[in-house]
């Protein structure tokens, strides 16, 4: 075993690694998942809740449609974003916007 050769190669490898590591400090873009905006509607009479995709013009406390169960008025109670993958895992069933 040639120790000089080993030492030299080790030095070269370390020096190269240092240069590569310095140069590799690249721009870090914030990770973005797929998000979907959900509108949560609630019946004022029976409390039935329904979720659907957000539609422009939705806002919290907007009276929005009729309850499919009791025919009462539905009011938008929450609007929030949710990770699309998380929703799939929960087995959420999509309701088309009205």
């Amino acid at each position: 075993m040639d120790y000089d050769m080993l030492f030299t190669l080790m030095l070269i490898v370390i020096a190269t690694l240092c240069i590569v590591m310095l140069a590799a400090r690249r721009f870090q873009k914030p990770s973005e998942g797929k998000y979907e905006t959900i509108t949560l509607r609630e019946c004022d009479s029976c409390g039935y809740r329904e979720r659907r995709s957000f539609v422009k013009g939705d806002y919290v406390l907007k009276i929005n449609g009729v309850c499919p169960k009791c025919g009462g008025t539905m009011t938008i109670m929450k609007i929030y974003v949710e990770k699309a993958e998380a929703r799939r895992q929960k087995g959420y069933k999509q309701i088309s916007p009205q």
Binding site: D2, D4, T8, A15
Partner: peptide, 16 residues
Amino acid sequence: LFGADNDLLSLLNSII
């Protein structure tokens, strides 16, 4: 090849 005298290695070491 990295001969007995290791001249090149010494040179490299010195340069580094």
